[in-house]
Computed example of a mutant assay.
Amino acid sequence: MADAELVVQVTGPVATVVIHNPGRRNAMTPAMWRQLPVLLDDLEADPAVRALVLTGADGTFCAGADLGDLDELLAAGDASIAVRAEERLAAFAKPTVAAVRGACVGGGCQLAVACDLRIAAADARFGVPPARLGLVYPTPTTRRLAGLVGPSAAKHLLFTAELVDAERALRIGLVDEVLPVDRLTGRVDELTAAIADRSRLTVTAAKEIVDGRADADRIAWWHRQVLDSGEAREGVAAFVERRPPRFGWTPPGRT
């Protein structure tokens, strides 16, 4: 295994991407930022994968980003490789869950916020440090953070660059659940198994609509999919018959 890389593990319908750079508390290097969209393209195209978990190795999520060449970073602005990777993660068509232990700072927080759900261990710490560095946080990242926690909490994180613990992150909506460290993996496994067992049609449509990526024509298309697929009829029949549903919808063009 390389010192700094993203490691993919697939177990049944769930893919896990592990941020692995233990010598630097899992900081994202330029190569890792470039690697992430490629991995996501492959996992999105894999019909066996129903959900994705993003986590860090050795008890740390991600302590930030390798700033690399500062002049190059400043010139890139919102077109940086980090923003491109974040946007690809946010647009991933399947449900994404960040499983957070330890430091989740800077680029790590950027990635966690781009996931659909964030489940944290009690030892998690979150921070947004650009004000310590004199950098302007990318526009898509800033708006995504504010949409998640609200303007006031986003400003607090951005203005102060303070670390917040898991309980405060839960109160402001930065994370969805906080678990004891020894229960984090089990809860993430339970959650992703439940998601993978649900109607893929429902889950995929819900993600598009909640994220604001479905216009009126697309929403009408989703409703046609419900009628044509028989998914709802199967769900209702399974409920009446008190049995697990046998959902079979797959995105057009996939098997």
Rank of each mutant, 00 (worst) to 15 (best):
A153Q: 07
E167P: 04
V149P: 00
T141P: 02
F247Q: 08
Q35Y: 02
F61E: 03
L73S: 04
E86Y: 06
P13H: 06
A27E: 09
V210Y: 08
E234H: 07
A48R: 15
T185Y: 04
R84A: 13
L43S: 07
W222K: 02
L6Q: 01
L227E: 15
G56E: 05
L39R: 05
L184K: 01
L133M: 14
V136P: 07
L39E: 05
I119K: 03
Y137N: 12
R25K: 14
A2P: 08
A2T: 09
G77S: 07
H20F: 06
I195D: 03
A114M: 02
Q9N: 14
E190F: 09
L54R: 00
D197R: 15
E241S: 11
R243A: 10
H20L: 06
R213W: 14
I195L: 14
C109T: 12
A161K: 06
D211N: 13
R242W: 10
A57E: 08
I209N: 05
A120D: 04
T96F: 05
A154E: 03
R233Y: 12
A206N: 10
E231R: 10
T55N: 08
A15W: 00
D215V: 05
W222A: 03
G150H: 12
R24M: 13
A114W: 00
A57Q: 04
G59V: 00
A112M: 09
C62Q: 02
L174K: 00
D42V: 13
V236H: 10
H223Q: 14
A206P: 02
V236I: 15
A98T: 05
T185S: 12
E162H: 13
P245L: 07
G212I: 11
A169H: 03
E234T: 11
W249M: 11
A237L: 13
V100M: 06
L158V: 13
L73W: 11
R144C: 07
V149L: 04
E190Y: 08
A131R: 10
E44R: 09
D66K: 05
V178H: 01
C62H: 03
D69V: 06
S229I: 11
T96G: 05
P130W: 11
V240C: 14
C62S: 12
H156T: 15
D189E: 15
D211G: 12
F126P: 01
L74W: 12
P252A: 14
G23C: 05
G12V: 10
D123R: 08
L67Y: 07
V100C: 10
E208P: 04
C62V: 08
A232P: 05
A114D: 01
A205H: 09
A76G: 09
W249V: 09
E167W: 12
Y137T: 14
S152N: 15
R200Y: 10
L227Y: 10
N21Y: 01
V18A: 05
A166H: 03
V113K: 00
H156S: 15
R168M: 13
L163Y: 13
S229K: 08
K155G: 10
F239Y: 15
